[in-house]
């Protein structure tokens, strides 16, 4: 076990554990906090993969902005009291089974023999650095980048349409 592996497994356990807590916590605020923890773990994974830019952007965008909005909404809606009514137990059971099946099927399908030896580069390879990503983004991916502005515009208009009081 190298230090990389230790970190990998630590982050993995943290990510999956927190993710499980997200869906099992009864209090939505706890769910949000555990989701943030998951994001932290995933950011850790990114750093292990030397994708520093994404790691930080993940923190800023997801943990720093998106989850704050979630917290906002949850707190303003005062959902801290346990207001989520019990879903039909069997439905829950079925949902869990379905998800588990998905997991099993996908794992079975993707456990390809010829990829056993394939590895992802850790801690090296500088494509994940800001400079390189930025160059690719603004050279190769300039069109989608500009187009995504349309997406934002529409989301902005949407927030106005839905949020503004008549």
């Amino acid at each position: 076990m190298s230090i990389t592996q230790i970190l990998f497994w630590f982050l993995t356990v943290m990510a999956i554990g927190s993710a499980l807590m997200v869906i099992t916590s009864r209090n939505p605020v706890y769910s949000v906090l555990f989701l943030i923890a998951t994001f932290f773990a995933i950011s850790g994974h990114y750093i292990l993969l030397n994708a520093q830019f994404l790691a930080i952007v993940n923190l800023i965008v997801y943990a720093g902005a998106i989850m704050v909005l979630f917290l906002f909404v949850i707190m303003l809606m005062n959902l801290n009291t346990e207001t989520e009514p019990q879903k039909n137990k069997w439905l829950k059971f079925a949902g869990t089974i379905a998800g588990g099946c998905l997991l099993l099927v996908m794992v079975a399908a993707l456990r390809d023999a010829d990829t056993k030896t394939t590895t992802a580069l850790m801690k090296e390879g500088d494509i994940g650095l800001v400079q390189n990503l930025g160059k690719t983004l603004f050279k190769e991916y300039v069109v989608p980048f500009e187009i995504s502005s349309v997406l934002f515009l529409s989301a902005m208009v949407g927030a106005v349409v839905l949020g503004k009081k008549d």
Binding site: Y141, P144, I147, L151, S154, G158
Partner: peptide
């Protein structure tokens, strides 16, 4: 990537229009 962006550009305004 373009498929994804296109679908999203279609979808997001639609969510809004649905709830308008």
């Amino acid at each position: 990537l373009m498929l994804f962006l296109g679908i999203e550009i279609i979808s997001i305004p639609l969510y809004i229009l649905t709830g308008s």
